Simulated scan of single mutants.
Amino acid sequence: MARGIDHDQARVRDWYLTVGIRELGGKTARELVQTGEADLVMGFLRSIRHGYRD
């Protein structure tokens, strides 16, 4: 879903691995997925796609 927002695979990979998501406790997408919270990441990405966040 992240590649639907940004088509640059390197930037998406960097975001997934290193950028803390403030709204989700500052954890990276990878950390959230690893702890079974992929649904939170997907919801976050959906909010971006719907224009609720930059």
Rank of each mutant, 00 (worst) to 15 (best):
E23N: 06
K27V: 10
Y52W: 07
M1I: 10
I48N: 00
Q34S: 14
R13L: 14
W15D: 09
G26D: 12
L24G: 08
Y16V: 14
R53Q: 10
A38M: 10
V41A: 02
I5N: 01
I21C: 01
E23L: 08
A2V: 04
R30H: 13
Y16H: 13
Q9L: 11
T28W: 06
A2P: 03
G51H: 05
T35V: 15
L45D: 02
R11N: 13
T28H: 05
T28Y: 05
T35W: 06
R46C: 00
K27T: 11
S47F: 01
A2D: 11
T35A: 15
V19S: 03
Q9A: 13
G51V: 05
F44K: 06
R22V: 05
M42G: 03
D39A: 11
Q34M: 15
D8A: 02
R3A: 02
D8G: 00
R53V: 04
D14Y: 13
V19N: 06
H50G: 03
E37V: 05
T35K: 15
I48W: 01
I48P: 00
A38H: 05
D14N: 12
Q9D: 12
R49E: 12
Y16E: 13
D8E: 13
W15K: 07
A2F: 03
Y16P: 08
D8C: 01
D8F: 00
D54R: 12
Y16K: 10
G26Q: 11
R49G: 05
R13G: 04
E31Q: 15
R3Y: 04
Y52I: 04
Q9N: 11
I48K: 04
R11A: 12
D6C: 12
R3V: 10
G4I: 05
I48R: 03
F44C: 04
T18S: 02
I21M: 07
T18Q: 11
I5C: 00
R49K: 13
L24A: 11
G43N: 13
A10P: 01
H7V: 13
A2S: 09
G51Y: 01
T35G: 15
Q34A: 15
E37C: 08
G4L: 09
T28E: 12
A29Y: 00
E31N: 03
I21Y: 03
D54V: 10
R30F: 09
A10H: 09
S47H: 07
E37F: 01
D14E: 14
D39E: 10
G43W: 06
D6V: 15
E23Q: 12
R3S: 09
G4C: 03
